[in-house]
Design a binder for these strands. Structure first.
Lengths: 147, 147
DNA sequence: TATTGTTATACTCTATAACTATA
DNA sequence: TATAGTTATAGAGTATAACAATA
């Protein structure tokens, strides 16, 4: 049983790494680090969100998030503004230039990363999705806290 | 179709992240960083291997590997020695102390990380394994080069 | 010439904890 | 007291490229 477990987990890591290598290398050609792309992708086509939400979605701790946001803000890709309803919170939003970058790179990036799976059928994706959703359900219910 | 693809990939990332959070946090309580644990786990119960092999298995570039190995060597957990057959290569091996560390922490770590999947049956693992193996086959055949 | 590994540089991310300001 | 976010610190990994030794 432990053997089956280890084989599955090893495969999970290998798949993720293999995918990341393709994705991260492409992201860097776009002039962003993977965490930076993650932020841009999360904020794209939204009204903006708090740093807390952003941290939960991207799985970054708040200290890390501050640094990543600093660099993106310095490049004029996003802004931080006060939330009048709760002045402890900020609202992080893409600027016009940031949304424009998102529009230019997001879809092509997805398309680029999808290439290795060009041979996948609808049924292949469905089967994969089913197993991963089940796995995620178990992992989540074990009570993993973000941040 | 792209929607199915994105859902699967998002799930892959989420599962890996959720698992990593459990695993990495536990690894750090053992006094190792995740890359360091990766090296120890790869070298455990082997005769040792070249830096090249180690880099391929752990997906680290050679520059990164040098740094990680430096820190482990400084702690007396592994040694680097010359390969007499090809003096460009080194042979990286756990020391007695390194193998001892491996023996003490590896199985408990696996057991710890397995907890969230305590409810998984043999069939659950088999189905997951099947889908991930298929995914890996496709990702690999796309020609991803390590290093 | 190609390969293995080290060195050097500069940057980014990370963990951690103390701190500020709000609530 | 608790929460959102910043700051500070120190370390670790990363990309990249130049380099030495060997093949």
């Amino acid at each position: 049983m432990n053997k089956r477990y280890m084989r599955s987990i090893r495969l999970l890591a290998e798949c993720y790494h293999a995918f990341s290598q393709v994705s991260d290398a492409h992201v860097r050609t776009l002039g962003l680090t993977p965490p930076q792309f993650d932020i841009i992708a999360t904020l794209g086509n939204t009204e903006g969100m708090s740093g807390k939400d952003l941290g939960e979605k991207t799985l970054m701790t708040k200290g890390t998030l501050t640094g990543v946001l600093d660099r993106l803000e310095a490049r004029g890709l996003l802004t931080r503004s006060m939330n009048p309803d709760d002045r402890r919170c900020m609202i992080v939003q893409l600027t016009v230039s940031g949304q424009d970058l998102f529009d230019r790179i997001f879809a092509p990036h997805v398309e680029f990363c999808r290439q290795p799976l060009a041979g996948y059928t609808e049924e292949d994706f469905l089967a994969l999705e089913r197993e991963l959703a089940k796995l995620k359900r178990h992992l989540d219910s074990a009570g993993i806290e973000g941040t």
